[in-house]
Design a protein around this nucleic acid. Structure first.
Lengths: 223, 223
DNA sequence: TAGAGTACGTGATGCGGGTCACAGGAACTT
DNA sequence: AAGTTCCTGTGACCCGCATCACGTACTCTA
């Protein structure tokens, strides 16, 4: 039942030393694991619950980069490089987290080459995601396009991938969705209204049904 | 005279094995090292010259992420993770490059824990940069703000950091600058015109003089 | 059951900046 | 010296969407 999957296929000796340095912790909903700009204290392996990762500007404007799910390692790059956390992590569910102090973690990496390689892989993944984010922010123009992409991405995560009329429960407010695609709350509302009018989606209570996946893909790709 | 600085403070045994797997190569100006979407062939350690890193949309719109300088390792994350290159690398000077094949490099990492840690650090740095890019794309609004930031960044790299009237030679066209800050060529032209009219910068031939650094910082920060 | 707080829906308005179109300049070719 | 090609400058136009300013609905607490 290991949830810190990143290290789970390591030799047992390595697993053991990881067990020795980790602190199992629980956080309530709305807790802040770390804030952008802080000196790195260590890594947080998310075992249960979801964590919102965001950056924000001086004027309060916020951009949500992703919602982290169990299995992810948070604060990894800052901890490795020693530079400040580059984003803010805040729980949006009650969470179960394994924390490892920076010094302990660095020592662990020096001692366990296999773990070090795993970390490199993790970091590559994170970099990849960041590049996708850059692409969508820098090249996708219309807000509608980004919303369509987001909906498709969600539907593919929910195990509803295959169905041609995927359902997904909207766990986020319009405000938060707006912060994910870098637009305003009102625009998100209007976009949803438009999608409904065009019969592309349909909302039943708090779940959203994608009635016309093809049309949504058309909006997402290209113009 | 080691230019692949990332590995230069490794034990000599590690250095030696790196020497054995690297291919020293020269590229002319305008050569393409790799293209986004390609399967990773390996890493490119840039020793001399500059390389333009960009992503581009289906419609041809391009975003320049950065201009890599000697000492940087290109294609690292793709090579480590095995996923496709996430961006395109194209030389803009004649370049001297050390190439290492993916399999050789992975074996090298497995054998040399110290190198592996260095790589993790490198990846963290890259991730950091990507986060800054995301921040500037997602939160900085006006094109003017981004241009000001870019100019300040350049002036600080040129050893002209301290001077209060830094000079910098414009090696890029307006078109390329536009692609760096995600705007159109015409907007860049207009922004420069405006900065000149307001006596903030001044151009002498192909070099640009920043006459009012404070004003430029004001534009860059905040609004 | 009233009131407060938070999310949603929608019109009116205005600005940033993308796009088009064209006119000088500068630099390289033959 | 004339032609090509690439860069720069500038005006006109217009569209997406941020912002403001409401009104409505739903939930939570007292």
């Amino acid at each position: 039942m290991r949830v810190d999957r990143i290290f789970c296929d390591l030799p047992t000796s390595a697993l053991q030393s990881f067990e020795n340095i980790k602190y199992a912790t629980a956080y309530p909903k709305g807790a802040v694991l770390f804030v952008e700009g802080q000196a790195p204290r260590g890594i947080f392996v998310l075992c249960k619950g979801r964590v919102k990762l965001s950056i924000c500007a001086t004027d309060g404007k916020t951009l949500i980069l992703k919602i982290a799910e169990p299995g992810e390692v948070l604060g990894l790059s800052a901890t490795v490089s020693g530079k400040p956390y580059e984003l803010t992590a805040e729980t949006i569910d009650p969470c179960q987290v394994n924390f490892v102090k920076r010094e302990d973690f660095l020592r662990f990496l020096k001692d366990q080459p296999d773990a070090c390689f795993k970390v490199a892989e993790q970091l590559s993944d994170k970099y990849n995601n960041a590049c996708h984010e850059v692409r969508s922010l820098g090249l996708s123009h219309s807000a509608g396009e980004k919303l369509a992409k987001l909906l498709l991405e969600w539907s593919s995560k929910n195990g509803e991938a295959a169905k041609q009329e995927p359902r997904l429960k909207m766990a986020l407010t319009h405000e938060e969705i707006a912060q994910m695609i870098g637009t305003s709350r009102e625009t998100v509302t209007r976009l949803f209204a438009d999608l409904k009018k065009r019969q592309i989606v349909q909302s039943k209570g708090s779940t959203l049904v994608i009635r016309n996946k093809a049309a949504l893909k058309l909006i997402a790709s290209n113009n």
